[in-house]
């Protein structure tokens, strides 16, 4: 049985459809990626999972059960728009938030100290939020969403606004939680994080799920279209090969776009005829390319 299951849920706001026939499931110990441009329906989906609004059609099951009041103690949420009480001390407000989730104050205090230690910011235990740097506020915000040991964790743009060191720190924390069996729904439009963390994804576009499934399988269904050619001399006539769509000159040589796999071999042949080839590589499509292909140029991201 899947930990979290969304069964054909739809949500309309007046005449506007926000989410249309969405279906996905997440197991314990899995990070599921929810991708989509702004306004694709990610936030609405997450709000429905959080029990804030109810789907018009379909249902959401948590361990096979419907949402009820007690679920709030098992849910953790890191909203995209970060917010904590600026004038309240870290320990005061995090313990408060944990208590609101029905978690005991003593256990929350222990968890808070452990997390602060893991993030190497123990000295902020007693500081007000407004005295912290933005990066540290983000860490506190992350702790706020996991302090009550949630079974289901919803992360909306978890790494935005963080420097690379802190991104690694949080990434490790998310992976640790996954390994402990937390069921994580992860929304972002930063593809590199998705490729690293998630096995399965859904790409949303204008309220519809346009692509869904295992990242590797998705990638395999898309043709390999990019050829990297490392040469130290000029190659003429590359565009004349059938199947070559475009040729861009780079510092290392050429980047060639092709429409079918056969053209790659022709490109290599021609390059070898005209001189030494130092590098030849047929790249699999990145998630970024797939995303842009699927969602089209209409996305602003």
């Amino acid at each position: 049985m899947k930990a979290l299951k969304l069964e054909e849920i739809s949500k309309n706001f007046g005449a506007k459809t926000a989410v249309d026939q969405m279906e996905l499931s997440v197991s314990h110990g899995e990070i599921y990626g929810l991708l989509g441009a702004n306004g694709a329906g990610k936030t609405t989906t997450m709000r429905m999972v959080l029990g804030l609004i109810y789907p018009d059609e379909g249902k959401i099951l948590y361990n096979g059960k419907k949402f009820n009041e007690k679920m709030t103690s098992k849910l953790g949420y890191l909203p995209e728009e970060r917010g904590l009480y600026p004038k309240v001390k870290v320990n005061d407000q995090l313990l408060y938030l944990a208590q609101l989730r029905g978690f005991s104050k003593k256990k929350a205090d222990k968890n808070l100290k452990d997390w602060l230690e893991q993030f190497e910011i123990t000295e902020y235990y007693n500081k007000k939020i407004e005295e912290l740097s933005k990066g540290n506020q983000q860490k506190i915000q992350f702790i706020a969403s996991v302090i009550h040991d949630p079974e289901f964790l919803i992360l909306d743009e978890a790494f935005s606004g963080l420097d690379p060191v802190n991104v690694e720190l949080l990434k490790k924390a998310v992976k640790d939680l996954r390994d402990k069996g937390t069921c994580i729904l992860f929304s972002t439009h930063r593809m590199e994080h998705v490729e690293e963390l998630c096995n399965r994804i859904s790409i949303l576009h204008r309220s519809k799920t346009v692509l869904k499934g295992d990242i590797k399988k998705i990638k395999n269904t898309y043709p390999k279209e990019r050829v990297i050619l490392g040469v130290d001399h000029e190659i003429s006539d590359l565009p004349s090969i059938p199947g070559v769509k475009s040729v861009v000159k780079q510092s290392f040589g050429y980047e060639v776009k092709i429409s079918d796999d056969g053209a790659a071999q022709e490109v290599l042949k021609m390059a070898m005829e005209q001189g030494n080839v130092t590098r030849f590589e047929i790249l699999e499509p990145t998630l970024n390319e797939i995303f842009i292909k699927v969602v089209g140029g209409e996305s602003n991201e």
């Binding site: 959080l50 709030t72 949420y77 909203p79 728009e81 917010g83 009480y85 989730r101 969403s145």
Partner: peptide
Amino acid sequence: TEKSSRVMEILVTSVP
């Protein structure tokens, strides 16, 4: 203030 500081997002998901 809770709304503008967005802490509301967390509050409404924790407490009715």
